[in-house]
Design a protein around this nucleic acid. Sequence first.
DNA 1: TGGCAATTTGGCAAAAATGCCAAATAGAGT
DNA 2: ACTCTATTTGGCATTTTTGCCAAATTGCCA
Lengths: 117, 117
Amino acid sequence: MSYEKEKGLAEARALVMKALAHPTRIFMVDLLTKNCLSVSELTEAVGADVSTVSKHLSILKQAGILVDRKEGNRVLYTLKCPCIMEFVHCIDDVIYQDAEQGISCVLPGARISVKKG
Amino acid sequence: MSYEKEKGLAEARALVMKALAHPTRIFMVDLLTKNCLSVSELTEAVGADVSTVSKHLSILKQAGILVDRKEGNRVLYTLKCPCIMEFVHCIDDVIYQDAEQGISCVLPGARISVKKG
DNA sequence: TGGCAATTTGGCAAAAATGCCAAATAGAGT
DNA sequence: ACTCTATTTGGCATTTTTGCCAAATTGCCA
């Protein structure tokens, strides 16, 4: 399997990863798992400039992670694929396995399993 | 839930995401799902400078995604948590849902399910 | 010890990401 | 039309990332 052949897929994956590879953006995605929020609500939660938050949201939207809809004056953002946080939790495994060795792919709240076929 | 309080977790998550947020690094992680490979084998597969590949590997190792062991002259890299690719496949959902609407969290080869408790 | 292959590290220039301010745009209500 | 609020966009300085070369390191084997 050559990199040339798989480069397109790798780049597409990296685009989504990059979108999540920022503390503020991860945090916002986490918030949006529970609620549908407007730009100003997210801005207040994050504590950065509105324009900064808006640009973060635009990155997440372009990566296909979020969708937005207008509601009067405001723009509400939602997760496009709610499963995104389950996959963030899989990242948590990587974090926790450093703290406690021997544990892999298991979290207190949720157990991830994969069925083939 | 304030950002101040959750910032640490968000940063830890972003660190792991960042490590995966590069086409070459994602590709190498993918390769390492199937085989345990040395730096030169990975270098040949990727087609970049050895020093570049070595630095990529070091980033993945520091993020807790890979582990390395010496075997004679060479250094072999392995996935620390094999489940990492399942999580990459969840990323694929985000990619594919753009192409074909309505499909979420399901891939041809593997279905991700989450059990609470 | 010397030579050779594999890997890592230092350094640096080019490219990309970040975050603020200021300005532009969009919508609701007067 | 005017104002006010919400959001996005342009611009720009600062920081981070990237990837190559050259040099240092490590381990094998003669």
